[in-house]
Design a protein around this nucleic acid. Structure first.
Lengths: 136, 136
DNA sequence: TTTTAAATAATAATAAATACTATTTATTTC
DNA sequence: GAAATAAATAGTATTTATTATTATTTAAAA
């Protein structure tokens, strides 16, 4: 997803345009992987040294709400990445740096209907590993 | 896994026997699902009112290390359940109460070797839902 | 340009998890 | 069985992620 498209999406949801929001999205376009709140905070501080950590928290939540970013849990920490809604897929994730690679298999294809006693609301399939860079 | 077997396993790893540890394991045998640290703390307090929350944290970590309990993340909180190593499987989890049901499909069966650039170290496949009791 | 409603900064408050230390207890050795 | 010792525990403090609060600033509308 391009930054402009994401910002447009945000606008449609009633959120205002701000330079900082644009910058946050820009950061995600440059990274092929998950970033923690602190990661984003450190990066955006280079351009906006006075930005508040709270602002980063808030905006990442808004982006998640607007389905611009998607999240997962890495080592007990919430991490974010650009959402790719174009096609449903899963990821292999480097547990060291958060880098991801798409997997075009969805195990839900083999699940038909709801198991007795449960109503399915979602699922998660993630493969964890170590990328070659982190392996060195 | 029976409590005795688990305690034996713990002993083999060099941990001592204590009543509190046995009680914690007992709690897990009575529950078919994930429990948070606080859940366990509340339950064991009925028998050992002076037990420290820290002790629960420590012991759950030891149990995880000894592969007696397994963990996942539910709503950003670490939760524990009895590990069933007998056969590899996955779960459908009630996001309300943590109740689980086994699924006998493993998506890793369809993954051959390591994707280029990554060394696989683990995986997670979980289906989320709402159990009938919580749906009421 | 004025208005106003949202965004932000700064700070405080929560909550989960970990760290530390003195005391107690399970197990070993005699 | 008693003494020694190494681990377990309680109690407390600390750290860290996250959320809440409030005054100020700013984007967008009138």
């Amino acid at each position: 997803m391009k930054v402009e498209v994401a910002m447009q999406k945000l606008k449609e949801k009633g959120y205002k345009y701000t330079q900082k929001r644009e910058k946050i999205l820009e950061i995600f376009t440059k990274v092929n992987g998950y970033l923690s709140v602190k990661d984003v905070y450190k990066k955006i501080k280079q351009d906006y040294p006075t930005i508040s950590l709270n602002t980063v928290y808030l905006n990442l939540s808004f982006f998640e709400e607007a389905e611009i970013l998607e999240t997962t849990d890495l080592n007990g920490e919430k991490v974010y990445r650009f959402s790719c809604e174009d096609q449903h897929h899963h990821h292999i994730i480097c547990t060291e740096c958060g880098k991801v690679k798409a997997i075009n298999i969805c195990p839900m294809d083999a699940i038909y209907g709801n198991p007795p006693g449960f109503t399915i609301t979602g699922h998660k399939f993630e493969i964890y590993g170590c990328c070659d860079e982190c392996n060195k």
